[in-house]
Design a protein around this nucleic acid. Structure first.
Lengths: 139, 139
DNA sequence: TTGAATGCAAAAAATTTGCATATTG
DNA sequence: CAATATGCAAATTTTTTGCATTCAA
């Protein structure tokens, strides 16, 4: 994987300290909302970063395929590295709890999507909604 | 499955024409944003429905487990019947195209989530992000 | 009749945009 | 130097909330 600067330039874009900081923050935080990112970056950097810059940076990083986002919370998107492929999020629609499952659980699912649609799925960190063990028993 | 009124009352809530209309609209439209629902309902009913009523109705219907939502478009949630289990949505993060896959594709995935976490997943209409066949080749 | 729901308007939250200025390549 | 990106503030868009009124049970 080439570095951020190279990738950005290849896409006709530029490497700025802000973009690097946003990428670093996403990596460091694991998952983060734009709000959390701006807070994290502003805490480290000398000057606070504009929230609009975070949005625009995330857009650029997403275009490069370096980050993606998911909707764990129904309102705010949560960003994470595309390569940070460690688990899948399952969200209970009853109690709102968030649990994690290893990627292997979806291996066959991904393979089938590939086979039938030619779609390269990024289920990693995808938010799967449903009922958790506990809430399920109660209904 | 008991009817809407019974279910609502069992939850200490009430059956109102608005809630029935919202449920009907979701069923008729398949998927719909709050905005689309208010439009659809207002077109049929004599008086236009308040958008806040749509939000509150959807909340109630979700609590009953009758509807769920997904994020096909990253901004606005799209609602659909929980029972309307026909397909899974795959969304390309590159071109934004939306494709569908039959539920069977996820059967094993769902079974495994159940087995490992006891989680009852509703992958139906879940939005899976990734790269479509076309965009995949270009990158 | 009484608690729950609606409608409206106002507030809050989240995201986007315009534009002058600064910065990258 | 030219094109791209930032920062700020204003504008949009989306969702929530307060409250008086209406309505379901």
């Amino acid at each position: 994987m080439s570095d951020l600067g190279t990738r950005l330039r290849a896409a006709g874009r530029r490497l700025t300290p802000q973009r690097q900081q946003v990428l670093d923050a996403v990596e460091r935080l694991g998952h983060a909302t734009p709000e959390q990112i701006v807070d994290a970056v502003s805490a480290q950097a000398d000057a606070p970063m504009a929230l609009s810059t975070v949005y625009r940076s995330l857009e650029a990083l997403q275009e490069l395929g370096l980050v993606t986002h998911t909707h764990v919370d129904h309102r705010v998107p949560s960003y994470h590295l595309t390569t940070h492929a460690t688990h899948i999020h399952v969200v209970c629609r009853e109690c709102g709890s968030v649990d994690e499952a290893p990627v292997e659980v979806a291996q066959e699912f991904v393979a089938r999507l590939d086979g039938s649609l030619g779609f390269q799925a990024d289920v990693t960190h995808a938010a799967i909604h449903g009922l958790c063990r506990t809430c399920r028993k109660q209904s």
